[in-house]
Design a protein around this nucleic acid. Structure first.
Lengths: 340, 340
DNA sequence: GACCATCTGTGTAACGATACACAGCTTCTA
DNA sequence: TAGAAGCTGTGTATCGTTACACAGATGGTC
């Protein structure tokens, strides 16, 4: 069913029918109603979106790349806030949000150009992610959240190093054996325990910057970074953080302060601490990140940032509505999980 | 930058260039590399998605409609599992997931036809949602999750009435004053306390069926439905359930059993019960729905169902990979929040 | 050596819509 | 009453790609 057929049945020209949908005030009431009547008779569902996009040169959709598998977008609670921020802006602009089918397979990058979108938003990924080059090659507006910074693409996020330094200082205050529960270091996503000195070649820029901030905080209380144990989690997941914390707490010299990288992880740290009979914060100080609902329920000291607002900022840049914004605001929220 | 320009620079015909991208084995190694070299030189990012969709008649994207505002998709934790299930199937099929820009405004339905998608998936909505007719008019594969049932569209979900009857029987066993904490009854989304008899004209089919099941469970222990208080929440939200439960518990005849409609809500009910000094389950039996992570942490009796699998089923139907499946499985998981 | 199958390359005709420019008619202004 | 300005309707060109059909070259088989 095409617009031409509708126009024919209505007894008007193709253009009159087209204007009926796109600039209704451009046609007389009479012609408009003839067209709409014909459309109903024929069961015409409106102008074809692909043809319209082709002709107009705009798809009215924003592409979103989340992590290494499409479903990741709906598994990480932080990602949900971010997506909600994008959604707010897209809804106002009448844009669709198109989540690209990333699977972790080698042909992912090839799927980038085949997406019908006007711009791209990429959730923080590793320095070596080939998707970044594919997007760069598309020469469309694109923004990366968190990093890495790519020439020609926007960048939205907070100063993770500074924030980690600040919250790390609170986490480690009065501690003798600080530790870190970390996001993965590279796409290999190996869950293990390392020490500061081993944590080289961190390919996720957000993880790298936060580790640098924690390192600075540790060194400021005269703790050698190479002795700080780092529980590396493969995913942002409370259960995994709980397991790795249990391991950390059973070390010969168990930590008395743990800085995590999300409230989700921190919740797992808290559970492991309780299970091990540790008092919080006296036996173990704990910090999270993001100031999610969990953080206030558990009384976690954390880094507050608005992923929702950052998502919205990404969308505005990708839509061309705004220039790349300055680094997003953050603050340390002190609660009962740290010593004062 | 078009394929024609690439072909010209490569010194081959347009079709040879096209085949290079779409059926590489159809082209000699020599021609293929000439085309790819020219593409790199010109910075050609691959065939234009809109033109390709127009010509092929397929967009390789599935449209998803979630609730009354786009961002809802990322605020309701149940919705996230459902979306993850869709994502699993889409990723395998190489399809994009396009979330449509619903805003709650009156022109929402008009945005349906302008989406470049091959099929639609609709998260449960109200009987009178105009979006359903708009989708029906598109004459593309479409599935509704939860309901309402629409002629010509698929339907995926569990038998909510039977499940509510079963879990309600457990919730209300040994109780004298059962109550319900409910999802909204209509799009008006009014949060209030009603009684069974007032709960007419429930426009959300999922809510309606669950209330019918709870009614049946109440009547089986000789409780008149019209006397059962129903705390109607405007959203699926723990905080709101907590507030409305506090109100229920301060009634002259406070409930001694509450069946909620999600684990999220049940978590709020638990918090309110604890705050009011009620012992669970002796003073107050509580049931949730969905068997989310919350449910096992809190020891909630609940209805287990896999929204993820149901999302996947919707996607398979919308892709035309499978016929509409039979009603999805569910079971009652008994934990410590109910009397035995 | 005739025949057939396979491989590679090409030209043409859509896919369905909208931008643009123009034409006829009506209405308003000076 | 001439001219300007606005309203409505239409024809044509084009967006960038791929399906299809056909043609010539190559290689294998009997």
């Amino acid at each position: 069913m095409t617009l031409a057929q509708v126009a024919e049945l209505a007894g008007v020209s193709l253009m009159t029918a087209s204007y009926t949908y796109n600039r209704p005030s451009r046609v007389s009431d009479e012609a408009r109603s003839k067209v709409l009547t014909a459309a109903v008779q024929l069961g015409y569902g409106g102008p074809d979106a692909s043809a319209r996009s082709l002709r107009r040169g705009s798809t009215r959709a924003l592409g979103v790349v989340m992590g290494e598998h499409l479903s990741y977008a709906f598994e990480d609670p932080q990602a949900a806030s971010f997506l909600a921020g994008i959604a707010d802006v897209c809804a106002d602009a009448g844009y669709c949000m198109t989540i690209l089918p990333i699977t972790g397979a080698s042909d992912d990058a090839a799927r980038i150009p085949s997406a019908a979108v006007d711009g791209f938003i990429v959730w923080t990924t590793s320095d070596d992610d080939p998707i970044l080059q594919a997007i760069q090659a598309m020469k469309r507006p694109a923004v990366v959240h968190g990093g890495p910074a790519i020439p020609g693409l926007g960048l939205v996020g907070i100063d993770n190093r500074a924030a980690a330094h600040a919250v790390g200082a609170v986490a480690f205050a009065g501690a003798e054996r600080p530790a870190v529960v970390s996001f993965p270091l590279s796409r290999a996503r190996i869950g293990t325990i390392m020490h500061g000195a081993d944590a080289r070649d961190v390919l996720f820029p957000v993880t790298r910057e936060r580790l640098e901030g924690y390192r600075q905080a540790a060194e400021e209380i005269d703790i050698a970074w190479h002795r700080v144990p780092i529980g590396v989690c493969a995913h942002n997941d409370a259960a995994e953080a709980e397991r790795i914390t249990a391991t950390l707490l059973s070390l010969p010299e168990p930590p008395d302060a743990i800085a995590a990288m999300s409230d989700e992880q921190a919740a797992g740290v808290v559970r492991a601490a309780v299970a091990a009979g540790r008092a919080i914060p006296d036996d173990l100080a704990i910090t999270g990140w993001d100031d999610a609902a969990t953080a206030s329920h558990l009384g976690l000291t954390t880094v507050a940032q608005s992923l929702r607002e950052q998502g919205a900022a990404c969308a505005r840049v990708a839509l061309g509505e705004a220039p790349n914004p300055p680094a997003a605001p953050w603050s340390v929220v002190r609660r009962g999980s740290t010593r004062h």
